[in-house]
């Protein structure tokens, strides 16, 4: 090949050198330091921020939702994810993390917590209590009501009178 052909060929290859790695584009990823404001890219919204089209936390929390099987089912799922590691699946306060040395939380099955208002549980979930950290960021407001409903169901499950059971259920008892 003569030099006459070499130059155009090299010129054709030149744009390739500027090819960016498209897999890694110039945009900050989550938790990478962000270039303009110098904070993490996914920093927290200002306290009290309400997403467009969503209800504020207070709007969700102020009224107790209707007790439905769907609410209880949601509550069971959330309870088993976020609460059961310490409180145990039945709420006796002996979850796996407690077995590994975490201070035991009180059982839900005592008079103090059976008489506690829903507001007490809502507040503890959001703000924490004693060595329990706040779960407000992990359990969303509507789910907190579901968890409270499920705690009530757990309490009833360990404190029900046989005489109060409906007839078909009573017959199935041993």
């Amino acid at each position: 090949m003569t030099g006459r052909h070499l130059l155009p060929l090299l010129l054709c290859l030149l744009p390739l050198a500027a090819c960016p790695d498209m897999a890694d584009q110039k945009r900050p990823d989550m938790a990478e330091p962000e270039p303009v404001l110098r904070g993490p890219t996914s920093s927290l919204p200002v306290p009290g921020t309400v997403a467009r089209g969503e209800r504020s936390a207070w709007d969700v929390l102020k009224d107790r939702p209707e007790m439905t099987p769907a609410l209880l089912e949601r509550g069971r799922e959330r309870f088993n994810i976020y609460c059961a590691p310490c409180h145990g699946v039945a709420g006796h306060g002996s979850g796996l993390i407690v077995e590994r040395g975490f201070p035991a939380p009180p059982s839900f099955h005592n008079d103090r917590l059976r008489d506690a208002t829903p507001g007490h549980f809502l507040s503890v979930i959001e703000n924490g209590f004693g060595v329990m950290y706040p779960y407000g960021d992990r359990v969303r407001p509507a789910d907190r009501w579901a968890v409270v409903a499920y705690i009530r169901a757990l309490q009833l499950s360990q404190h029900a009178q046989v005489s109060e059971l409906p007839e078909p259920l009573r017959e199935r008892l041993p």
């Binding site: 989550m30 994810i81 976020y82 975490f102 060595v131 950290y133 992990r138």
Partner: peptide, 27 residues
């Protein structure tokens, strides 16, 4: 428990240091 935004957002989320400390403030 740790990746708690995955059900509602595009990203599953990496746990905050507070999530780790929920247990490791005691253990």
């Amino acid at each position: 428990y740790c990746h708690y935004t995955g059900e509602e957002t595009a990203k599953a989320g990496l746990p905050t240091s507070e999530t780790c400390m929920t247990c490791h403030s005691q253990l």
